[in-house]
Design a binder for these strands. Sequence first.
DNA 1: TGAATAGTGTCTTTCAGACAATATGCC
DNA 2: GGCATATTGTCTGAAAGACACTATTCA
Lengths: 265, 265
Amino acid sequence: MTATNPFLAQIIRERENESSVSRFHEYETPLVTVDVVIFTVQDQRLKVLLIKRRHEPYIHHWALPGGFIRSGESLQDAAERRLFEETHVKDVYLQQIRAFGKPKRDPRARVISIGFYALVGSTRIKPIADSDAEDVGWYCVTELPTLAFDHNLIITTALQNLQVNLEDTPVAFQLLTEKFTLTELQKVYELIENKPLDKRNFRKKMLSSGILTETGELKKEGRHRPAQLYRFTTGMPDDDVEENPEALKDVLQDINEPMSKNGHQ
Amino acid sequence: MTATNPFLAQIIRERENESSVSRFHEYETPLVTVDVVIFTVQDQRLKVLLIKRRHEPYIHHWALPGGFIRSGESLQDAAERRLFEETHVKDVYLQQIRAFGKPKRDPRARVISIGFYALVGSTRIKPIADSDAEDVGWYCVTELPTLAFDHNLIITTALQNLQVNLEDTPVAFQLLTEKFTLTELQKVYELIENKPLDKRNFRKKMLSSGILTETGELKKEGRHRPAQLYRFTTGMPDDDVEENPEALKDVLQDINEPMSKNGHQ
DNA sequence: TGAATAGTGTCTTTCAGACAATATGCC
DNA sequence: GGCATATTGTCTGAAAGACACTATTCA
C-alpha cells in the first residue's frame, strides 16, 4: 500500500535533509476524490441523490456520487462536474463541507475525500435518462440506508452545515423554483431545520428581512384562496473566494483595521 | 505533470468501463498536505506562527507550518504532528478549516492542502529551541507579509472561521492560561472579533452564561486594584466525530425525528 | 492623594416566540 | 354555503447595546 509519487520523493528528500533522517517510507500518496451530497425537495421531503455501486468494495451498496479529481480541475470544478453528470444541472449552489481523511475509510487504498453539498430545485432535475442506467435514487434524509464508506457521516455533516448556513444566509431559495409562495418557503425551512415553525412569525421575519420581492402573481391551486408568489431579491451567494485572490484584500482590509485603543507596540 | 498511482489506475479502469471511454490520462494523483494556522496571543496581539522556507519554490518566503500526510495518519493526526514539531505542545484546540485545491497553488505539482487552525495559550509555547534552527516567527495577523502559496488565503479563512466559531463556542479560553481575569478574556474577544467591546455588557454576558467559575484568587499587578481570577467551567470541545462513527447515531437520531404534521407518504 | 485598572446598573431597542381569528377563491 | 388554505397583529420575555460612575490597590 505504499503508492508513491515522483514529485513527493523529491520534495520529501528536501525536507528530510533538514533533519538528516530519511523517513521516505513513512509517506504515501493518497488518492483524492470529491463526494457530493445533492439535496432537493420532492414530495414535501428533503432528499439526497444516491447511486448504487457496481464494483467492490461495497458492491450493491448505495453511495454518494463522487469521483477523482482530474488534471487542472479545482475541487469545486470536480464537484460541479460530478453534479452535472448525475443531474444535468449547472449553476447550482455548491458548497464545500470539509475533507474526510480517516486512514481506513476506503479499504483499497488511502483515499481522502473532499465533501460538498449542492442545493438543486427539484424542477431543474431531468428524469435522469443517463448514460449507463446506473441505479440512482433519491432518498429521504430521514430514511437513509447504510451507505458505502463514510458516506453517512458526510451526509450528516452536510446537513449540519446546511442548518448552520440557513441561519444567516438565504440558501433555502436554492431549493425552490424562481417564484414561490411563503408557505412553500416555510416548508423548506421546516425540512432543513427539522422542526415545525410558526406561520405568523415566519412570515413576519421573511417579509421584514427584505430578501423577498412580490411578483404580483398568484398561485391558484385547489379550491381555496390563492397565494401570493414571491421572488428572491439578491443574487446567489459567492463562493469563489479561492478563484478570486483579489477578493482576499477586502477581507484582510477588514481584519487589518487596527484596534482603537492600545496602540501598544 | 502526470504523476499516477497504481491503485488509481485500477479504480479508474473499473469506473470507465461503465462509459466505455478511457479517460485515464485525464486523471493525476495530487499530493496532499496539511497546513496549520497556529494562533496565539502575545503582547496583546493576535499572532500566527510562520516559518521561513529554505527551498524553492518561494525560497526565503514565509509560510505556514505544514507537511505531507504519513501512512496511517489521519488528517487531524498530521496537523497535530506538525503542530507539535513546531511548538512542542500537545492537547491543543485544533479545527479543520477546509481543503484548498486550486490547480496552480503549488507550481511544482498538484498539491491539495487541508487547512487547520490551532489555538495555543502563549505560556504553553516553549522558546522553540528546535532542531535545525529553522527561521520561525510569530506574526501579528494585522501585519502579515506576503506568504508562500495561498497561505494568506488560508489564514484569512482560518480567521473568519474562528470569528464565526467564537459566536457560539467558548473557544477564547484556548488562548488563555488556566486562570484569567475578565479583562484578559475580553481582550481575546476583541482581538478575534477585531473591534472594541463594552466592558459592562461583556462581563454581564460572560458571568450570566455559566461558563466561568470563580477561583477566589486575585491577580495583583501594578499599582491598582487586583482582579478576580476565573476558570473555564466546561471541557474542551470535541472534534473527534470522524474517529467516532458511533457518535453519528446521535446526530442522525435528531435528524430522523419525523415532522410532526404531514405524515405524508 | 493620585494613578491605574476593577467592578457595577439602568434604560432602550430589537428580536424571538406564543397565540387565533378573518379573508378569499373554488367547488 | 362549505371547504381549504392564505393572510394578518398583539403581547411577553430575553438578549443586545448604549452609557458613566464608584472601588480598590499601590507608589
